[in-house]
Measured scan of single mutants.
Amino acid sequence: MQIFVKTLTGKTITLEVEPSDTIENVKAKIQDKEGIPPDQQRLIFAGKQLEDGRTLSDYNIQKESTSHLVLR
């Protein structure tokens, strides 16, 4: 499924993911596309910070959901 990640600069990154993917996996995909190390990434969805060990389905992130990327 596709999800979108919006950066603070207003850029939207499109990612191909599975509901069973962990947040860690998603951060690795963002690193592949954008070159941002996962330890600098914070992903926010529905006002919550997403934890590495959880999956997209844990957070009820469905296709075409948009989460926000904040850099630390």
Rank of each mutant, 00 (worst) to 15 (best):
A46V: 06
S65H: 08
H68R: 08
T14N: 06
N60M: 07
Y59V: 03
Q62C: 11
P38I: 15
E34H: 07
S65A: 09
Q62E: 11
L69R: 02
T7K: 04
S20F: 11
K48P: 01
K6D: 07
Q49T: 15
P19N: 05
D58A: 05
K33A: 12
L8R: 11
P38V: 15
L8N: 11
E16Y: 13
T55H: 05
R42A: 09
E16S: 11
I61T: 02
K29F: 05
G53D: 11
E64T: 10
E24L: 14
V17M: 04
P19K: 06
K33L: 13
V17K: 00
Q62F: 13
G10W: 05
K63M: 11
K11P: 04
L50V: 04
V5H: 01
H68D: 07
Q31I: 02
V70W: 12
Q49Y: 13
K11H: 11
S57N: 09
P19T: 07
M1L: 08
N60L: 05
R42E: 11
E18T: 14
S65R: 07
K33Y: 08
K11T: 08
Y59F: 04
V17Y: 03
G53N: 12
V70F: 13
R72M: 15
K48Y: 09
E64V: 07
L43M: 03
K48W: 07
L50F: 02
T22H: 04
Q2A: 08
S65N: 10
G53V: 07
L71S: 06
D32G: 09
T55E: 03
R42G: 05
E16T: 13
A46D: 13
Q40C: 13
D39H: 13
S57H: 09
T7W: 10
T66N: 10
G35L: 04
K48D: 06
Q40G: 05
L69P: 02
Q2P: 05
L43T: 00
R54S: 07
R72I: 15
H68P: 07
I3F: 05
Q49D: 14
T66Y: 09
I13W: 05
K63R: 12
T55L: 08
S67K: 11
L71V: 10
L71M: 08
L71Q: 06
L43D: 00
T7R: 06
F4I: 10
T22F: 08
S67N: 10
Q2D: 05
N60C: 07
K29G: 03
T14D: 04
F45S: 04
D32N: 10
A28C: 09
L43S: 00
